[in-house]
Design a protein around this nucleic acid. Structure first.
Length: 561
RNA sequence: GACCUCGUAGCUCAGCUGGAUAGAGCAACUGCCUUCUAAGCAGUAGGUCACAGGUUCGAAUCCUGUCGGGGUCGCCA
C-alpha cells in the first residue's frame, strides 16, 4: 500500500505501482489468460437457432444465433464442456403451406433453375401461400365479421356464434381487434386452401410417399441455404435434433407421470398436470386422442438430451414470448424428479424491433438475414475505401477485411445490449463504425499489431520480450492494467448471467482505456528501453485480451484496417 | 381480467447482489494528424433515473401502488 485517505466516510487505498507491474510481468504473455475454472468438470448443452424450415432466417434469428454462439463460447471460456444443439422445426402446418404453394404455382422451380438460395425459394412460396390465402378469404372475412357467415361443422358454428356474441358486447379497441382476428382465423381454417394444407399434414403423418418425398426435397433446399448463412455468421452445431423425430417422444414419460401421480387424466382421456399450487395453471400434456402437444415432445427431448450427453446444465436460447412454456416445462421435469431439472435454464431474449415497428413475416415486413449481412459488408467496403485504407492489400485480403468488419459491426451492435431486453434495430445506426462498435474494438487491436510489427522489424528492439518491467508506472498505464486485471471476473460474470453484453461492454472499456494511453504515451519513440519494453508488453497483453474477448462474441480480429 | 417484463440525456444503451459529483456512444458545438493507423483522442452542452409513496444513516438500484410500452394466458409450435 502506498497511501490512503478518507473522503466522505470512504477509505481510499492507493496500491503501490509494483503490484500492477507484478501482474503485468506474470500475465502479459499468458496464452490462457481469460480462461477460468468456474465450470471445470461440468457439461452444458446450449440449444439455439431452432429454425423453421419454411422460410429464410431473419433479424430475430440473427439475435438468437449470435447469442447462442457467444453463450457457448462463454461457457467454454469458463471451463465447461459444451454441446451446441439445434432443434430444427422441420414439420407442421407451416411447412405444408410452402409445399402446397410450390405444387400449385411452382412450375417445377428449383434452386438450380432459378439461381435462388434454397431457403429463399421455399420462403418465396410461403409468402405466395399467405397472399393466396389472404385473397381467397378477404371477402369471406368481411361477411363473417358482419355476422353473415355460415361455417361448416358444429364445432366451428358454436365457436363462431360465441365470438359474435362477445364482439357485440366488446367495447375496447384491443379486444375488438382480438375477436376479429379470431374470426379471421376461423374463416382461414375453413378455406379450400387450408383444407388442402391440413390434408397434406395428415398425409405426411401417415407417411404418404409423394408427400414425404416433396418434404424431403424442399427441406434439403432449405438446409443448403441455412448452411451458407450459418457459415457466414460463424454458427455451428455439435448435435442436430429434428422435430420430425422428436415429436414422437415424451409419451412414455406421460405414462410414467400418470403412474407416479404427477399427471392425471380427464374423462376424455386427455392428460394434465395441475400447477396451481406453484402459481401457474393446469396444463395439458397429452391430447384426448393420445397425440402429443408441444410440451410433450419437449419433455421427451429433455430426457433424450440427458441420456445422450449427461449434461449438468441445459440452456434454451428462445425468445421471451415462451417464458411461460419454459416455466411449465422446468417445473414438470422437477416434479418428475429429474436430476437435471435444476440445471435447466431459459435464456429468454427480447424481440428485435425496427423503427417502422414490429416484424411480421406474414406481411413481409422482415429484415432478411442474408440481405442484412450483405449490406453490412458493403458498408464496410464503402467506408474502408472512403478512408483510403485499401493500400497494400490484395483483393482477397480486402474482401476478407470487409467481411470481417461488416459482421463485426452487426454482431457487436446486437450483442452489446442485454439479451433479456427488447432492442431496437435502427439500420442507420447499426451500420455506424464509430464509437461503441465492433470495428472500434478491432481498430484498437489492429493499431497495436501495427506497433508490434514495427517493434519486431526493428533489430534494436528484438529483445523487448525479455527485458524487465518498469515498476514506476504512469497513471494511464495503471488504468490499462487495472482493466486487464478485471477480465477473468468479467468472463465469469458474463457466463453466469449468460450475457455476452458484459463482454461487449468490457471490450469498449478496454479499448477506450488503451486508446487514451496510446494517445498520451508513446511506445516506439520512448527513449528509455525499460519503459519501452514495458509498454510493448502492455500493448501485447491488451491485444491478446481484446482478441480473446472479441472471439467470445464470435468476432474475428483483423491485423490491419 | 390475471400473470410476466421493460420505462435512465433528443436517440441507442451501460449502471440495478443499496453507497461518493448517475456513465458511454450517436446527433450538436470546440480543439488535436511534418511524431507508433484521426475507424482515434481531449473538451463543451444535454438527466427532477416514468410518477407517487415506503424501507434505510443512504435508493436509479429493494418493497407497494399508479401510468405507459411489450409479452403470455391454444387440445398451435
Amino acid at each position: 500500500m502506498a497511501d490512503f485517505n478518507v473522503v466522505k466516510g470512504f477509505l481510499n487505498i492507493v496500491l503501490k505501482t509494483d503490484i500492477y507491474a507484478g501482474f503485468l510481468k506474470s500475465e502479459w504473455n499468458n496464452a490462457s489468460f481469460g480462461q477460468t475454472s468456474l465450470g471445470a468438470g461440468k457439461k452444458v448443452m446450449v440449444e439455439y437457432s431452432s429454425p423453421n424450415t419454411n422460410k429464410p432466417l431473419h433479424l430475430g434469428h440473427v439475435r438468437n444465433n449470435l447469442l447462442g454462439v457467444s453463450v457457448a463460447n462463454l461457457y467454454k471460456a469458463a471451463g465447461y464442456e459444451v454441446v451446441m444443439a439445434n432443434l430444427v422445426n422441420d414439420r407442421g402446418i407451416h411447412i405444408c403451406k410452402s409445399m402446397i404453394a410450390w405444387q400449385k404455382f411452382g412450375n417445377g422451380e428449383t434452386p438450380e433453375s432459378t439461381g435462388m438460395k434454397g431457403d429463399h425459394l421455399v420462403g418465396k412460396y410461403y409468402v405466395i401461400f399467405e397472399n393466396a390465402l389472404r385473397d381467397q378469404t378477404l371477402p369471406v372475412i368481411e361477411t363473417a365479421i358482419a355476422g353473415n357467415w355460415t361455417p361448416e361443422g358444429d364445432v366451428a358454428q358454436t365457436k363462431y356464434s360465441a365470438i359474435l356474441g362477445q364482439l357485440q358486447k366488446a367495447t375496447e379497441d384491443k379486444q375488438i381487434a382480438k375477436l376479429k382476428d379470431d374470426i379471421k382465423e376461423l374463416v382461414r381454417n375453413q378455406s379450400a386452401l387450408m383444407r388442402e394444407t391440413q390434408q397434406m399434414l395428415r398425409d405426411w403423418e401417415a407417411g404418404v410417399p409423394e408427400v414425404i418425398s416433396l418434404w424431403k426435397t424442399m427441406n434439403a433446399w432449405v438446409y443448403s441455404g441455412f448452411e451458407k448463412t450459418y457459415a457466414r455468421m460463424g454458427v455451428s452445431f455439435d448435435q442436430y435434433y429434428y422435430e420430425s423425430d422428436t415429436y414422437k417422444l415424451g409419451k412414455d414419460v406421460v405414462d410414467e407421470g400418470l403412474r407416479n401421480g404427477v399427471f392425471y387424466s380427464k374423462d376424455d382421456g386427455s392428460v394434465w398436470i395441475d400447477l396451481r399450487e406453484d402459481g401457474l395453471d393446469e396444463k395439458l400434456v397429452l391430447r384426448g386422442d393420445g397425440t402429443s402437444v408441444y410440451i410433450t415432445q419437449d419433455i421427451g427431448t429433455a430426457d433424450l438430451k440427458y441420456q445422450q450427453h449427461g449434461v449438468d446444465q441445459s440452456i434454451y436460447v428462445v425468445g421471451n414470448e415462451q417464458d411461460y412454456h419454459f416455466k411449465v416445462l422446468f417445473l414438470i421435469m422437477k416434479k418428475l424428479g429429474r436430476p437435471f431439472a435444476s440445471g435447466m435454464h431459459h435464456l429468454s431474449y427480447g424481440m428485435v424491433d425496427l423503427p417502422s415497428g414490429k416484424m411480421k413475416s406474414r406481411e413481409g415486413t422482415v429484415v432478411d438475414a442474408d440481405d442484412l449481412i450483405q449490406e453490412m459488408v458493403n458498408e464496410a467496403k464503402a467506408k474502408t475505401i472512403e478512408l483510403g485504407k485499401t493500400e497494400g492489400l490484395a483483393d482477397e485480403e480486402l474482401s476478407n477485411l470487409y467481411e470481417s468488419l461488416g459482421l463485426s459491426a452487426l454482431k457487436f451492435f446486437i450483442l452489446k445490449v442485454d439479451p433479456r431486453k427488447r432492442m431496437l434495430f435502427n439500420p442507420q445506426e447499426s451500420i455506424d463504425f464509430q464509437g461503441d462498435t465492433g470495428p472500434f474494438v478491432q481498430y484498437t487491436y489492429a493499431r497495436i499489431q501495427s506497433i508490434l510489427r514495427s517493434a519486431s522489424a526493428d533489430a534494436s528492439n528484438a529483445s523487448w520480450q525479455q527485458g524487465d518491467i518498469n515498476d514506476q508506472l504512469q497513471p494511464l498505464e495503471i488504468e490499462a492494467i487495472q482493466t486487464l486485471y478485471r477480465y477473468s471476473e468479467e468472463v465469469n460474470k458474463a457466463c453466469s448471467e449468460s450475457s455476452p453484453a458484459v463482454i461487449a461492454q468490457y471490450c469498449i472499456d478496454l479499448s477506450r482505456t488503451f486508446n487514451r494511453f496510446y494517445n498520451e504515451c508513446h511506445i516506439m519513440r520512448e527513449p528509455d528501453p525499460i519503459i519501452k519494453n514495458t509498454r510493448l508488453k502492455l500493448a501485447h497483453f491488451t491485444a491478446h485480451t481484446l482478441k480473446h474477448a472479441l472471439n467470445l462474441l464470435g468476432i474475428q480480429v483483423v491485423e490491419r484496417m
